[in-house]
Amino acid sequence: MGIAGDILLRVEHLTMRFGGLVAVDDLSFDARQGEITALIGPNGAGKTTVFNCITGFYKPSEGRIGLCHGDAAIWSELDALTEGGNRGIKQGSNGLYLLERMPDYLVTQQARVARTFQNIRLFPGMTVLENLLVAQHNSLMLASGYTLLGIFGFPSYRRAEKASIDLARDWLNRVGLIHRADDPAGDLPYGDQRRLEIARAMCTDPVLLCLDEPAAGLNPRESAQLNELLLSIGNDHGISILLIEHDMSVVMEISDHVIVLDYGVKISDGAPEEVRNDPKVIAAYLGVPDDEVEKVEAEVGL
């Protein structure tokens, strides 16, 4: 784990085009170690597209997305890595990855970026516990000797499975779902499903957690619980969070850094306070102030 405040994720000149539509246009921003970075903007601003580019679900049309594990000194390798054809380098416990070069599952497996979805994607026919065990697939797969040791019930695999169940139990305690552990995930109420999805993402052992509208559809009490959970994930585990959110109470209360997108372009970037008072942001969300409208009308000759 790197030092808090170092750059963890660096998005540079990210552009995503779908045919003639430019969903994200030359976006650059940084997310820092141990911070909660919020990505906000009106509907259709391109937030989820940015997420899909970072997590490998889309291949960006242009741009570079770097992610660093451990010491920030490794960022100096970024240009060399870009020149070479590799997806990433590893030096001891430090690593540097170019996410735009990785397929979606490797972004989670190697670069350790976990994500949740705007429309919850649990495994509804599997129990809550099973959902959390599927999230630990890669480590368990290794422990089961790619199934060979597991099928003969080697004790090393049994230990690994027990450890993974303990980890799952831990997370279920934290999100308050331990009493539902053996129930199918599809049976949980909406708010619980949201928390379970976050717990499941955390079980993949990420360095960066990407949450796509985690507070959507939650009532104020659940929303407050969510704030607490996200803050504790940041504080207790030192895990950085990248967040898309419409709920301003969540954004303003917990984020350290806010980026505002409108029509795929970054219009503001800074601490929540600065962003809140930025006239461009206010214009994007509430429309332009009246005097500006009058000015434009005068120009047009109305």
Partner: peptide, 24 residues
């Protein structure tokens, strides 16, 4: 075993599997 759970997870939701780092 993890491989069997991954099969069932795949049946349930393939995109979620990929987001969890499973090579589908």
């Amino acid at each position: 075993l993890p491989v069997g759970r991954a099969w069932e997870a795949l049946r349930e939701d393939e995109i979620a599997c990929r987001a969890l780092g499973i090579n589908t």
